[in-house]
């Protein structure tokens, strides 16, 4: 696949990026309550209130969560050295969910940020376990790695479901495992700014994650500490996942689709590609959420479902694609 001149190879990405302001504006005006330019400046101020309390927070939440999860997916792929790994195929999301459930059972009164911290700790433990397992698989077949992650996630999820069932919390469990932005209101999404801050940290360490993606020998050879990079990556991935799961619920496959698309077009020099990953992640989540709001209007389809459908198809495409690069 010879590349055309640099400008053209990035053209589709630039188009996507340009569409994000449009999508954001659309996101502000799509919904059951009538918010439009005419009602916005109407006398009762109701539309303005809806905009400020619901629509703007929702749009910001979409952008932050989308960017964060896409970047988390990229980092996971570098750490696991596998294209098919992301927080929902590595046990990260399920561990975070188990963490929240644990808090809800033992200390339901804790503030949200403490809940997120516990969820992040669980996520880190689960993901470390995943990385430890795949390191012990003698023949690291590329398909075996995500399978192990999905199975590990299944086991952890079974534990969560058992306790949620015993303590009558299945409904809450459903909320965390299926991403949904309809409940985002002012005062209930701000935690996601943590995810934004972590995305910035990830960008600053981008070259290190690229190096880690070349393997531990490669990393040691140029004088870097592989374990330290893995620890940093794990911390970022776990915290981003925890924050997203706590505030809006899991968005499956996002961390799989976006990093793979960007990698196919731009490669994996993260210093160059990570901004695109974040931008496209935000745009993709915005678009899926708007689709979810429109498809059964006036009802909403949760974004987890929309992304799940698109993501499964894309996952199959990745698996079946001819000349699939054997990672």
């Amino acid at each position: 696949m010879p590349r055309a001149s640099k400008d053209w190879s990035q053209a589709p990405l630039v188009l996507c990026a340009l569409s994000i302001p449009l999508l954001s504006v659309a996101s502000l005006f799509v919904g059951v309550s009538d918010v439009s330019f005419s009602t916005l400046f109407g006398s009762d101020g109701r539309a303005l209130q809806v905009l400020l309390i619901s629509r703007i927070p929702r749009t910001i939440a979409l952008v932050l969560a989308g960017a964060g999860m896409a970047v988390a997916g990229t980092i996971m792929q570098m750490l696991a050295r596998n294209r098919f790994v992301e927080p929902s195929t590595a046990g990260t999301v399920e561990s975070a969910t188990l963490g929240i459930l644990t808090v809800m059972l033992f200390a339901p009164g804790l503030p949200v940020i403490a809940k997120a911290a516990v969820a992040a700790t669980f996520a880190m433990a689960g993901t470390s376990l995943f990385l430890a397992i795949i390191r012990r698989i003698p023949l690291r077949s590329i398909l075996l790695v995500p399978l192990v992650g999905i199975m590990l996630g299944g086991v952890i999820n079974a534990v969560s479901t058992f306790f949620a069932y015993r303590f009558d919390m299945l409904q809450s469990l459903g909320a965390w495992t299926s991403g949904d932005f309809s409940g985002v209101l002012r005062g209930r999404y701000e935690l996601l700014w943590i995810s934004f801050a972590l995305t910035v940290v990830a960008y600053m360490a981008a070259r290190r994650f690229t190096v880690a993606g070349m393997g531990d020998d490669f990393t040691t050879n140029i004088g870097l500490n592989y374990r330290r990079i893995v620890a940093l990556g794990l911390a970022i991935v776990s915290m981003v996942t925890a924050v997203v799961v706590v505030t809006v619920g899991m968005i499956p496959f996002l961390g799989l689709i976006i990093p793979n698309v960007v990698s196919m077009m731009l490669g994996d020099n993260l210093k160059r590609s990570l901004p695109w990953v974040a931008t496209l992640g935000a745009g993709f989540v915005l678009a899926c959420d708007i689709v979810g709001r429109l498809i059964l209007y006036p009802y909403e389809v949760p974004i987890g479902t929309v992304v799940g459908v698109v993501g499964s198809v894309f996952f199959l495409y990745l698996l079946l694609r001819k000349n699939a690069r054997v990672a």
Binding site: S263, N269, R325
Partner: peptide, 11 residues
């Protein structure tokens, strides 16, 4: 040199 990261030769 089993690699995952997709780099250009110059990178």
């Amino acid at each position: 040199n089993h690699m995952t990261a997709r780099l250009t030769v110059r990178d």
